[in-house]
Write a protein that binds this DNA or RNA. Structure first.
Lengths: 265, 265
DNA sequence: GTCAAATATTGAACCTGATTCAAAAAATGC
DNA sequence: GCATTTTTTGAATCAGGTTCAATATTTGAC
């Protein structure tokens, strides 16, 4: 028995090593430039060994995405445990993602890439399942907050929708905004700056639309509204995300992005 | 002069031929399986000639995405010219995308893939620009509808936001929902079916939240709401999109998807 | 401790398919 | 008709993902 266990543990450790190396590579050179052979060499293993863990490059990407879900989960956990009205917590979930996206831009880039049919389908089914499961806790936090809101009477639910059916609008809006942000040049083209600020604003509206109490009132016809939202956001940041609100770099990005190989140059 | 012009025209025609072939390939075999050489051969040209038009495979994808924007634009145009309250038109824009996504699933798949940093950055800058410009008309329709709503007093704008700043929530929600839909297994995992129905529902809420008149009232606590929305949607479909509401296949998809090469089998 | 069997690792060879570019062909214009 | 320019060709190159026969290590019995 013990031998089996040790082997499994070592195998898992090595996998982690590979994942760390891959993450490092991505932050260093960008997803485009990741090479299987290099990741293996970086860990002092041969290519073949790497393939013992991951069925393909895409498989590795999906695995990495799964692994990174844990970090997001940690933020969501804070929100879950936060003693605040349900509405604030629901909002804080999007805020968490926003901060995370700015701190670790590579994460959402990868996430977006992986969610692409092309990549997703190229990963092994087991890996896809694993990835889904890794994300489950995120869904659970959302579900819990929504359910609590319904139970407490903060959130009317005349249509008896499932919690996630109520939340999917906000979810999609977040995903979509990340997508738009990562399409370099797109938002600038339409002169849309501060996309994440707009996202937060629209999420507030969206929660209002759901009639989620207490409403965030915006009917004073001044430009103070933006101020007020900023202030509100800052408040949450100070309470829950103190550690995330300073600089905005990829955590293990020891060099600047400038180092990346640019295609077409 | 005339020679120059003829050459340019022929060049453009050939490019179109390549694009059509590429589109056909994508619908037939999926994005993953597209091969440059095959596209060239299909048009009775050599690989080299294909590369005279597109700097790389990614470049071709982005070009194709640009080209397909024209089709979406056509739908948006109908909405623009529709003589109906601004709110209905705004809603109809998302509906148009929804129908389009169901009719030509490959389009949004490609769109999503192309918007990925990995692909986007691998295309030539000129191509990216071209793609952005191809999408401009879409933005313009949106902008026009929003502006008209503000002018008519249908849509209050206390913060003096730009039209697209007001619309970006709805836009992001649509983009995000397509993304979620295309991540096979994801929504099922959370037991979310009928995602596009939910999208439309949430868009209505979102418009309500913007206080866009006339509000779509949903405060009767019955399950009739879904009915009512369906009915409303059907009405728009019959008026504007009669041609799109029957079967849901990729337009030039002569064979079923079953033909596609499946990785991992 | 030794050895055969079972397991794990290696990395060079293989393979696919994108991209290039020297040679061949076609078009131009004198 | 011919020299020059432009275009097309497709075999050769190249990159990098993936495989697998050979090699090394570990195991467990004796």
């Amino acid at each position: 028995m013990s031998i089996q266990e040790r082997k499994q543990r070592q195998f898992a450790e090595r996998e982690q090593q590979f994942l760390d190396a891959a993450k490092h590579e991505i932050c260093q050179r960008g997803i485009l430039a990741v090479q299987m052979a290099r990741i293996a060499r970086q860990c002092d293993y041969s290519t073949g060994t790497l393939y013992q863990h991951f069925a393909s490059k895409e498989d590795l990407f999906v695995a990495l995405n799964a692994e990174m879900a844990a970090q997001r989960t940690a933020l969501f956990e804070r929100v879950r445990q936060w003693r605040a009205p349900t509405r604030d917590r629901m909002f804080a979930l999007t805020l968490a993602d926003t901060l995370f996206a700015q701190r670790q831009p590579e994460h959402f880039r990868l996430s977006q890439y992986v969610t692409t049919e092309v990549i997703w389908q190229a990963a092994s089914p087991e890996r896809r399942q694993q990835c889904l499961e890794a994300h489950r806790p995120l869904g659970e936090v959302v579900e819990q907050v929504v359910r609590e809101a319904i139970d407490k009477g903060d959130l009317p639910n005349p249509q008896q929708l499932a919690p996630l059916e109520l939340a999917i609008g906000q979810w999609a809006m977040g995903v979509g905004m990340h997508t738009l942000v990562h399409a370099e040049g797109l938002l600038q083209y339409y002169d849309l700056n501060q996309p994440y600020e707009l996202l937060l604003q629209h999420v507030q509206r969206h929660l209002n639309a759901l009639n989620w109490q207490p409403l965030f009132d915006e009917n004073k016809n001044t430009t103070q509204n933006a101020e007020r939202l900023n202030h509100y956001v800052a408040g949450i940041c100070n309470t829950l995300f103190t550690d995330l609100c300073s600089n905005h770099q990829c955590r293990d990005n020891d060099a600047s992005n400038a180092k990346r190989k640019k295609p077409h140059e």
